[in-house]
């Protein structure tokens, strides 16, 4: 049940057609895992905290460095040299003390993925390395959890919604780790934040039931040219990571 304060706090978004108290209650009951809270994941977490997602679990290791601060907007200058996880928790708690925030000072891996994915409803993949992304994907597909994929590079951003049994997965989109991918990539926070906000709304749509998610569709945004394209993607035949196809095959 929403409290009177929650009804007031979220009143403007509850006015969105199709949300109302029932949609807000679904957000309150939702449990979402975000892999890393950097330039993308941090803004995803910020938007979902503001929207009142009841439980946010965030996996992000390491200590804050000066070079993080141009885009990782949950991080603050006074936390330099300290655990990123502590700064993430403090910023999100300051924004919304009504929700549960669990920050794990670990990056996602094949070893911890079963535990981290285990009791959430939805996962959002914001890691900067393909092994982490594949570990998240493989566990989400194994457990039948939907996954939002929202990578960026320079002025490019991709966005899609993987739903086990109804779409392909990250391994279908990119079967192999590109050897040329480097941990450091060119980024303005305005670009990583743009795809983050769109990814957060994909999550809100899925949880509340409003709108249409990007199932079997890859949105490519080039913010340098402002070209946005919706492109069809599908499950690869015999993908060993996808669960059996759901015969409903509805995008509704």
């Amino acid at each position: 049940m929403l409290t009177d304060f929650e009804k007031e706090r979220y009143s403007w978004q509850m006015d969105v057609p199709g949300v109302g108290e029932a949609g807000q209650e679904r957000l309150k009951q939702a449990r979402v895992l975000i892999s890393r809270a950097g330039g993308v994941g941090g803004l995803v977490a910020f938007q979902l905290a503001a929207a009142g997602v009841g439980t946010l679990r965030i996996a992000h290791a390491g200590n804050l460095k000066p070079a993080d601060l141009n885009r990782q907007l949950l991080m603050t200058h006074d936390h330099l040299g300290r655990l990123r996880a502590d700064c993430i928790h403090q910023t999100l708690s300051d924004l919304n003390p009504l929700i549960e925030i669990e920050v794990i000072p670990e990056n996602l891996s094949a070893e911890n993925a079963p535990r981290l994915v285990g009791d959430v409803d939805l996962v959002i993949d914001c890691a900067p390395l393909f092994p982490e992304r594949f570990a998240m994907n493989d566990e989400a597909m194994r457990q039948g959890k939907p996954m939002i994929e929202c990578p960026m590079y320079d002025s490019d951003a991709y966005l899609t919604f993987f739903q086990p049994g109804r779409t392909g997965c990250l391994r279908c989109l990119h079967p192999e780790t590109p050897p040329e991918w480097k941990r450091r990539f060119p980024v303005f926070g305005a670009v990583s934040g743009t795809v983050a906000c769109m990814a957060a709304y994909e999550a809100i749509k899925h949880i509340t039931g409003i709108g249409t998610n990007l199932r079997n569709t890859l949105l490519h945004c080039d913010l340098a040219t402002m070209r946005f394209r919706r492109l069809p993607i599908e499950r690869r035949a015999n993908c060993p990571y996808c669960p059996p196809a759901d015969e409903r095959r509805s995008d509704a």
Binding site: R36, V40, P128, C150, P151, Y153, D154, D156, H174, W181
Partner: peptide, 10 residues
């Protein structure tokens, strides 16, 4: 013809 390589910036 659109060419999209894998990217993973996060």
């Amino acid at each position: 013809v659109v060419l999209l390589p894998p990217i993973a910036g996060g």
